[in-house]
Amino acid sequence: MGRSRSTVNFLRIVMSTPLPRLGHPDLVFGLGLRTVHYTHILEEEPDIDWFEIISENYMDSQGRPRHVLNRIAERYPLVMHGVSLSIGSTDPLDHTYLKKLKKLAAEIKPHWVSDHLCWTGVAGKNTHDLLPMLLTEHSLNHVIERIRIVQDVLERRFVFENPSSYVGFTGSTLTEWEFLTRMAVEADCGLLLDVNNVYVSSRNHEFDPEEFIDAIPANRVVQIHLAGHTDCDTHLIDTHDHPVIDQVWDLYRKAVARCGPVSTLLEWDANIPPFPDLHAEVLKAKHQLRPESERVKEPGEDLAKTDSSSVPHPLHHNKVEVQ
């Protein structure tokens, strides 16, 4: 019996191996651009390789955030990272949002534009959270079709991140890594591999995180996210307010071994330290990529923050300056 047309198509796409990182550059070690660091960055021009911005914080901005961004864009490479595309929602795509996203990208010229494999709301309501997908063939086709529309509108390949998740659905028929792999290959998009999210989800859903890393299409990984999480004993929560722990560094090394050098970003969204401290934290990634004999372990590195009352990291919000 011959293969179905869709299977042949799938195999054909898999066989045509894309360039590493889909041809995007390795921007090396970057940080998320946060309001509290604006003044330091503008005055000190720190020697950071690149910044990631939250797209929604700038797409409507006509005040200081946008002014600062324009100045930073003159000096540093940028990438755009969104939280509201809601690619997995059954609501229609928001074309006003896409138009604004495209306009911002045209103006600040990021190396790539990313968001999350998730849905943020339905029936016109936005929870401003990254909600987990029901992982089925139908969901996969739904997401692939929408990614193609987004990529057509934006006239660029999009990049999608694996979010942390806290629930799974009995109706799911695919693993997250199967879903991500087929989505990336069939929609011809990139992946933002958040290794902390892989670890958090692996603990919450009781799977082997290395199986996840081994399965994803390495050449489609355009960027890696690192972050800290909170151990609530019965589950982990992605809080972005703590240093990266040893187990996540292990996954990071494994990911880099599979994907090759790839732009790496440290996320920190609550209790944000001074810029130099955060910069030092992301540079630990460089240290972590050295051979084991050259790595010095710092006390407490393998410990996650413990707090049973944590909630997932807040979505970033611009702070007002007023006299």
Partner: peptide, 18 residues
């Protein structure tokens, strides 16, 4: 019965968590 209707699952989850 396993629930696999994407739209229903999303609307249901939204109603429950909010």
């Amino acid at each position: 019965m396993k629930h696999n209707d994407l739209d229903r699952v999303q609307r249901w989850m939204h109603a429950v968590i909010t």
